[in-house]
Simulated scan of single mutants.
Amino acid sequence: MPLLSLRALTRRFGQTLALDRLDLDVAAGEFLTLLGGSGSGKSTLLRVVAGFETADSGAVLLEGRDLSGVPPHARPLNMMFQSYALFPHMNVAANVAYGLRRDGVPRAERDARVGQALAMVGLEGFGGRLPHRLSGGQRQRVALARALVKRPRLLLLDEPLGALDANLRERTGFELRALQRETGAAFIMVTHDQQEALALADRVAVLEHGRVVQLGPPRAVYDRPATRFVAQFLGAANVLEGRPDGAGGFDCPGLGATLRPEGALPPGTAACALRPERIALRPLAEGPNSAEGVVEEVAFRGDDSLLLVRAGGGALLRVGHAEEDGAPPPRGATVRLGWEAASVVPLAG
Rank of each mutant, 00 (worst) to 15 (best):
A199N: 05
G64M: 09
V92N: 11
A280R: 15
D158I: 02
L32F: 04
K42C: 02
D325W: 15
L255Y: 14
N289K: 10
L17F: 13
V190M: 03
P88G: 05
A119L: 07
L134M: 13
V149P: 08
D111G: 08
G235C: 05
A27R: 14
L317T: 06
F300Y: 13
D20I: 04
A94M: 10
D304G: 14
R110E: 07
A236Q: 11
G320F: 02
V92K: 15
E277R: 14
I279Y: 00
Y98D: 05
L148W: 00
D303H: 11
R12H: 15
Y222C: 00
R113E: 06
R219K: 13
L161G: 04
Q15L: 11
A341P: 03
Q180H: 03
M79C: 04
L207Y: 12
A199T: 06
N167R: 15
R243I: 09
A201F: 02
A94K: 14
R177E: 00
L306T: 14
P283I: 01
V114S: 07
D193C: 10
E297I: 06
E292G: 14
F300N: 07
L308A: 10
G242P: 09
S38A: 09
P261T: 08
V294G: 01
P225E: 13
L86N: 00
P2K: 15
A199K: 07
V114W: 10
R169Q: 14
T44C: 01
A348K: 12
Q82Y: 04
S83D: 14
H321D: 02
P72H: 07
D20V: 09
G242L: 09
G313M: 06
R275I: 08
G216W: 10
R133F: 03
G314P: 02
A85C: 07
L179Y: 05
R177F: 00
Q138D: 05
L154P: 03
D304E: 15
L155C: 08
A271N: 10
E63Q: 15
G302R: 11
L17I: 14
V92Q: 11
E340H: 02
L46P: 01
W339C: 03
D111F: 01
V239R: 14
G256K: 07
P288A: 10
R151G: 00
F52Q: 14
F229G: 09
P244I: 03
D325G: 15
L168I: 15
A85G: 10
F233S: 08
Q140M: 12
V212D: 09
L179N: 04
K42F: 01
A143W: 13
L22F: 15
A327I: 12
V96T: 09
S290F: 00
D202G: 03
F87P: 12
L316I: 10
L100P: 12
T10I: 06
R243V: 11
L45E: 12
A236I: 04
L259R: 00
R146H: 10
P261D: 02
R139L: 01
L34D: 00
L77F: 08
